[in-house]
Design a binder for these strands. Structure first.
Length: 155
DNA sequence: GCCAACGTTGGC
DNA sequence: GCCAACGTTGGC
């Protein structure tokens, strides 16, 4: 089973928004980066776990857990000329962009802030805290997943 | 294929 | 708002 971290700007789509969706499920649309696309299309599998991360906000950090309920399929929002994520170079018979569906599992008891993740020696190598990594979809190793969850309990 | 210009991400 | 770190684009 794979572990991932998905970034979202809470002003655009927050973890609470995910919980408010029908069946607490959404399609992870709008990823327009080839590395992230490859993960969505090829590597992210049904049942994989996802940390939901809030970026570009007062307290960036991990706020919840979701799971993959549908594997990679074409991101149809790229086909719609009126949609925010329209890409004229992606067409239905040769889609350029992919997405998966995720469902909310639970909110964390507290936000685990980026600053705290950075301070953990045990999380060395975590893609999120490697210099300059701006991908919105990132892998998380089993060991790192466990280490992060171990940070959750409130003292 | 190189590389400068430009746009975006996202922490601070 | 600033700016570092990328990714993309397009001229050559």
């Amino acid at each position: 089973m794979g572990n991932w971290l998905f970034k979202s700007e809470p002003e655009v789509f927050s973890y609470a928004d995910l919980e408010g969706e029908k069946k607490k499920t959404t399609h992870w649309e709008g990823v327009r980066n080839y590395q992230a696309r490859n993960m969505l299309r090829d590597q992210i599998k049904l049942g994989d776990r996802v940390f939901f991360y809030h970026s570009n906000c007062p307290e960036p950090g991990i706020v919840g857990i979701a799971e993959v309920v549908k594997e990679g399929y074409p991101d149809h929002t790229a086909f719609d000329a009126k949609a925010r994520y329209y890409d004229e170079k992606s067409v239905a018979d040769k889609p350029r962009w992919y997405m998966v569906d995720i469902r909310a599992v639970r909110a964390l008891q507290r936000v685990i802030p980026l600053s705290e993740l950075k301070a953990q020696e045990k999380l060395d190598g975590l893609a999120l805290i490697r210099r300059g990594n701006r991908l919105s979809v990132l892998p998380v190793s089993d060991a790192h997943w466990q280490e992060i969850l171990a940070l959750e309990p409130v003292a």
